[in-house]
């Protein structure tokens, strides 16, 4: 026979457990980023130029290859690293060299970086080098942007559409 006091005790225990579940399932709030700040995120995947020039194979060389492996050009497999540079209001925001992926270093170079920045108007410059050149850059884009609080400003890169894309 359950006594009334036992029932009250059980009710208190259930209420405490329920309150714990209810509270900690959505509280306390976690401040992930300053709500008054914005964010610039740069992310893309791009294959740089190959480490060497392609060489056209002679007819004899092609004939020596297995039938399913015959090709007109012999290209070195590896790719160059990519140099990336970001400037915000003429101050460096990021500069890095991105190695090609893959065991043979023949894949795309990938970047995924985010930077908290203050809101308001900014002058943004993005530069990228994917060739053998030792000075300067192969791609450069600049934009004047006005960032709102909590805005996520994305910089992408697509060589086929001309370079950087600001969103």
């Amino acid at each position: 026979m359950i006594k009334p006091l036992n029932l009250i005790g059980q009710a208190i225990a259930y209420a405490a457990f329920g309150a714990m579940l209810g509270y900690f399932s959505a509280a306390p709030a976690y401040v992930y980023r300053d709500p008054n700040m914005a964010q610039i995120k740069i992310s893309f995947s791009h294959a740089a130029q190959r480490v060497g020039e392609c060489r056209r194979l002679s007819a004899e060389e092609i004939a020596k290859l297995a039938p399913n492996m015959r090709r007109p050009l012999d290209c070195p497999r590896g790719r160059l690293p990519i140099l990336i540079e970001l400037e915000l209001d003429n101050q460096p925001l990021y500069r890095g060299e991105l190695p090609p992926t893959g065991l043979a270093r023949d894949g795309s170079a990938t970047i995924y970086q985010r930077f908290p920045v203050t809101t308001g108007k900014h002058h943004l410059v993005a530069r990228l080098r994917d060739s053998k050149r030792t000075t300067g850059f192969d791609y450069e884009s600049a934009a004047d942007v006005e960032l709102a609080p909590q805005q996520n400003f994305v910089i992408e890169f697509r060589a086929e559409t001309g370079g950087f894309i600001f969103k």
Binding site: F24, A26, A27, A29, Q150
Partner: peptide
């Protein structure tokens, strides 16, 4: 909204 950063979230702490 992927155009914004989720600054404050109510986490499920479990």
């Amino acid at each position: 909204n992927l155009n914004t950063v989720t600054a404050i979230v109510n986490l499920d702490w479990f």
